[in-house]
Simulated scan of single mutants.
Amino acid sequence: MPLSLLALAVAAFGIGTTEFVVMGLLPDVARDLGVTIPAAGLLVTGYALGVVIGAPVMAILTAALPRKATLVGLMALFIGGNVLCALAPSYGLLMGARIVTAFCHAAFFGIGSVVAADLVPRQKRAQAIALVFAGLTIANVLGVPAGTAFGQWMGWRATFWAVAVIGIAALCALIVLVPGRLPMAHGGILKEFRVLGNGQVMLAMLISVLCSASLFCVFTYISPLLSEVTGLSAPAITGALLLFGVGLTAGNMLGGRLADWKLMPSLIGTILALLVVLLAFVPGARAPVPALALLLIWGVLAFALVPLLQLRVVDTAASAPNLASTLNQGAFNLGNAMGAWIGAVAITHGIAYGHLPFVSVGLSLLALLASLLSAALDRPAVRRPSPVECGE
């Protein structure tokens, strides 16, 4: 694997850290800016919506630009956004800075995925994409806990300064390590947007939305689930989340290898395995040992889907990979928001925390049906011979 992939992974680590680290700093942010903790929590929602809105906007703005220059520019935007977060004197300005930072998210991962796939032989494309996304998963394992601890020690603004420094390191690595002559899409943005009329592209993005929604329907409420159903203490829940992060990282690399092996069979098989784990999680969550084992396996399967789905979108949108890959990042984040909302509605209507996996099972079943349909459409139609060919 070329060193340029390491530069992309470092940038992904910074982006992943800034996306989620604010969750551990909500009380500090709320106290400093004079808002409630629920209001501070909207900084997470605002970032996710910024990714969804920013995906098509940034796809249009960067369509005709060279890929390396685009990646460097996006990382500069990321650095600026985090500096604004660190300096923000009010809640409104902090929210605006978070949204500015989020605008680079979808475009960076979208274009970065295409660049990573172009830098390696065809049979290693998914592994290259997985290596980029490994930065995102490692951010959840290391970056977010370290950033939270640093912010609680030095103040929440110090965390954003630290992330900006990571961004500067990534920017330098991108300039030095990523080759300047990378293939570009041709034909204009209007031609690229025509790819959205391709049913296979839209099916791939729908699967991304449903798989993300299935994950966040439960994961958003994993702390109260582990506390009230499994009976874990607060320190034990922290360890459980670390274990889940390890599963995400392992799953990401596994998904890359599976996608390079057999993409659609691996996608369908992973969703089937995920259904089994989610069903087992309902009774398994009642005791610590099976709950932790299932949590680890769930993390592996949930993030094995990411490189599978990202490569599927790139493959089905061969004429517009930058646009489709970028929009798929918006699809993932739309699924995140939908899953959290669906989980909230379910809890509000009396669904117990321990039964939330049943709701995720329903979403995963829809993803499975969409995957089966997509695989069926891949098969070439069998042409029946004409009477002349049959000698009639």
Rank of each mutant, 00 (worst) to 15 (best):
G73R: 06
A55H: 11
A69Y: 00
A64S: 15
G81E: 01
I79S: 09
A12R: 01
L42M: 15
G54N: 06
A11Y: 00
E19I: 09
V57R: 08
P38N: 00
F20I: 11
L61A: 15
A76Q: 06
A48F: 11
A63T: 00
L25S: 05
M58K: 02
L25H: 07
I15P: 06
T36M: 04
G81S: 06
G14W: 07
T62F: 12
L74Y: 01
L26A: 12
V10N: 07
L71C: 11
M23T: 14
L42R: 10
D32P: 10
V44F: 13
V35T: 14
G14P: 09
L33Y: 03
V10C: 08
G54W: 05
E19G: 09
G46Y: 08
A40Q: 05
I37V: 15
G24N: 05
P27Y: 13
V52R: 05
E19P: 13
G54V: 05
V44T: 15
Y47K: 00
M58Q: 01
F13D: 01
A63S: 15
V44R: 05
T62E: 08
L77D: 02
G46V: 08
G73Y: 08
P66Y: 02
G54D: 04
A39K: 14
G73K: 04
V52L: 10
G46E: 03
L49S: 00
T17E: 03
T18Y: 04
I37S: 02
A59N: 01
P38D: 00
L43F: 07
V21T: 09
T70C: 05
F13K: 02
L42S: 13
I79G: 10
V52K: 03
L43T: 13
G50V: 04
T36R: 11
V52C: 04
L26M: 14
A76T: 14
G41Q: 03
A55L: 09
A39T: 14
A40N: 07
D28W: 12
L77V: 15
L42Q: 15
G34R: 08
P56C: 12
D32C: 11
G34H: 10
G16W: 11
V52D: 02
A55K: 06
P66F: 03
V10L: 15
I15A: 12
L74H: 03
R31K: 14
A69E: 06
D28P: 11
F20N: 13
G50H: 04
P27K: 11
L33H: 10
G46R: 06
V72I: 15
A64W: 00
A69H: 07
V57H: 09
A12G: 15
A30I: 04
G34E: 04
G14A: 11
D28T: 09
I79N: 08
